[in-house]
């Protein structure tokens, strides 16, 4: 399957919905299969690779931060980038620039760049398939 390119459009903010987890699972599955993946993060989804996400303790259950090992979506994005390097796939992740500015989320993990919805249109035209995962 290598050589194929799939495009995903994500809209959900992190930490809110199982759709984010499923979307990242799909993207990871594709890169592990050696496929190139385009990701357009729109609206709240620009927070997924936000590099200032911070793990926390769980005082209710008595766990310190290190014990709780709270999962952070930015780390999942980094892992996807690493899996792509291992499989020879390319991941091009674009955050909607206006959405980033609105939310003050300019800092993102390595491999993420700014763009516009026009990039999604271009990807939809040129990739082998596109999946939009809407919020509702």
């Amino acid at each position: 399957m290598s050589g194929k390119t799939l495009t995903f459009c994500l809209m959900d903010a992190p930490f809110e919905n199982a759709r984010t987890t499923t979307a990242l699972r799909l993207i990871d599955t594709a890169v592990r299969q050696g496929m190139n993946v385009n990701v357009f993060a729109y609206e709240g989804a620009v927070g997924i690779p936000f590099s200032k996400q911070s793990a926390h303790a769980n005082s209710v259950h008595g766990f310190e931060k290190e014990e709780w090992n709270h999962p952070l979506p930015k780390d999942w994005v980094t892992e996807i980038m690493n899996h792509a390097k291992a499989s020879g796939a390319k991941v091009d992740w674009i955050n909607c620039g206006l959405c980033v500015d609105e939310r003050g989320m300019n800092e993102a993990v390595e491999g993420v760049r700014r763009g516009t919805p026009g990039d999604l249109v271009n990807w939809a035209d040129t990739s082998d398939n596109t999946l939009v995962i809407p919020t509702k």
């Binding site: 399957m1 194929k4 799939l6 499923t22 699972r25 799909l26 599955t29 594709a30 299969q33 496929m35 082998d128 398939n129 596109t130 999946l131 939009v132 995962i133 809407p134």
Partner: peptide
């Protein structure tokens, strides 16, 4: 089934809706 099915069908050009 595993999610691989979704990726393989997308790569084969299936019209995909979520």
């Amino acid at each position: 089934a595993e999610l691989d099915v979704v990726i393989e069908k997308m790569a084969d050009g299936a019209k995909t809706l979520w």
